[in-house]
Amino acid sequence: MQLTFHGHACVSLALPDGGGTLVIDPGSFSDTQAALNGATAVLITHDHADHLDAEAVLQHLASGTDAHVWGPRSAIDDLLSGDAPTERVHEVTPGDVLHISGAQVTVGGGDHAEIHPDAPRLARNVTYHVTTPGRGIYHPGDSYTAPDALPDDVLDVLLVPVSGPWVKLAEVIDFARAVPAAVVVPIHDAPLSEVGHTLTARWLDTARLGGKYTYTRLSAGESLTV
């Protein structure tokens, strides 16, 4: 499959054998028009606007497509309040396993990363492990929750959040090193300048602190064959 980065936390996956395009987290900091163009399935990790541009997703659902959307209750409620078709919007909870156009999607997580002990964690955040035969990618949303079970030869791409009010670089590094993957792709990066990207890349480069992955930053619109 082909993974394309659309800015911030949004990626699309062109599924093999004509399975269509699966999009994860088309939010307000992303190029949602490009991401949703032709999308047959949309996965939402949580209801924050930088992960769910509800207006863009509603427009996509109303555009004549037969696309379906999956997400936690709060995200689904945002779409249903905007008159999304109920038969094409589905709630997920950790432990669910979805079968979408030849891909298996295992839902995990449940908790948004803590921003501060005095700030309540209101958002429910789920993670998505998307696999096709012999291939897999993992999107943690706003968390560093690892997959519950991970065969050694399945995870090709680990998407790693690298910036935000809840992000600490030590946790970024630990997450990248703890989850075995061939390639680490930084996401959740809209707050970073080019200087910030350079510094982050230096710390996540395996030559400095170890690890067995290749760190690969993608620009918006750039793709990686998985």
Rank of each mutant, 00 (worst) to 15 (best):
residue 143 S to F: 07
residue 119 A to N: 14
residue 179 V to K: 13
residue 212 K to T: 14
residue 157 V to P: 12
residue 181 A to F: 11
residue 9 A to H: 04
residue 221 G to D: 11
residue 30 S to H: 05
residue 185 V to W: 04
residue 226 V to R: 08
residue 39 A to T: 02
residue 36 L to P: 05
residue 158 L to T: 10
residue 82 G to F: 06
residue 19 G to A: 02
residue 83 D to P: 00
residue 16 P to Q: 00
residue 6 H to T: 09
residue 212 K to E: 14
residue 150 L to Y: 15
residue 35 A to L: 07
residue 60 H to I: 06
residue 222 E to K: 12
residue 121 R to T: 01
residue 48 H to Y: 08
residue 215 Y to T: 12
residue 182 A to I: 00
residue 196 G to S: 08
residue 171 E to W: 08
residue 28 S to F: 08
residue 124 R to H: 10
residue 25 D to Y: 00
residue 70 W to R: 09
residue 131 T to I: 02
residue 197 H to A: 10
residue 144 Y to V: 08
residue 188 H to I: 06
residue 28 S to I: 03
residue 93 T to W: 01
residue 138 Y to K: 11
residue 21 T to C: 07
residue 134 G to D: 11
residue 178 A to Y: 12
residue 13 L to R: 00
residue 41 A to S: 13
residue 155 L to N: 04
residue 187 I to F: 07
residue 101 S to D: 14
residue 100 I to A: 11
residue 217 R to N: 12
residue 20 G to H: 04
residue 125 N to L: 04
residue 24 I to L: 08
residue 32 T to G: 02
residue 51 H to W: 04
residue 123 A to F: 06
residue 188 H to D: 02
residue 18 G to K: 03
residue 137 I to P: 04
residue 68 H to F: 04
residue 10 C to W: 02
residue 149 A to D: 14
residue 13 L to P: 01
residue 75 A to S: 09
residue 58 L to H: 10
residue 164 G to S: 00
residue 153 D to A: 12
residue 155 L to I: 09
residue 58 L to N: 06
residue 2 Q to C: 07
residue 66 D to Q: 15
residue 160 V to S: 02
residue 48 H to K: 07
residue 166 W to C: 03
residue 132 T to A: 14
residue 87 E to G: 01
residue 205 D to K: 05
residue 226 V to N: 11
residue 7 G to W: 03
residue 62 A to Q: 14
residue 158 L to V: 12
residue 59 Q to K: 12
residue 42 V to K: 09
residue 124 R to I: 08
residue 224 L to R: 13
residue 133 P to K: 12
residue 147 P to V: 07
residue 123 A to R: 01
residue 122 L to C: 02
residue 190 A to H: 01
residue 148 D to S: 15
residue 185 V to Y: 10
residue 222 E to G: 09
residue 81 S to F: 03
residue 73 R to C: 09
residue 189 D to E: 15
residue 223 S to T: 15
residue 193 S to W: 05
residue 201 A to S: 15
residue 137 I to Q: 02
residue 153 D to V: 00
residue 96 D to F: 11
residue 37 N to C: 14
residue 1 M to V: 07
residue 105 V to D: 08
residue 197 H to R: 13
residue 15 L to F: 08
residue 44 I to G: 03
residue 128 Y to P: 09
residue 77 D to S: 01
residue 62 A to R: 15
residue 96 D to I: 05
residue 51 H to V: 03
residue 7 G to V: 02
residue 144 Y to D: 10
residue 10 C to H: 10
residue 165 P to A: 05
residue 97 V to H: 12
residue 179 V to R: 11
residue 59 Q to C: 09
residue 221 G to N: 11
residue 182 A to R: 15
residue 72 P to Q: 01
residue 51 H to G: 01
residue 179 V to D: 05
residue 223 S to H: 13
residue 226 V to Q: 13
residue 74 S to F: 00
residue 119 A to C: 13
residue 31 D to Y: 09
residue 103 A to Q: 11
residue 218 L to S: 12
residue 77 D to N: 00
residue 63 S to N: 15
residue 169 L to A: 12
residue 226 V to W: 14
residue 146 A to Y: 06
residue 108 G to F: 03
residue 136 G to D: 09
residue 211 G to R: 05
residue 174 D to R: 13
residue 60 H to V: 10
residue 208 R to L: 15
residue 220 A to E: 10
residue 56 A to V: 05
residue 217 R to E: 12
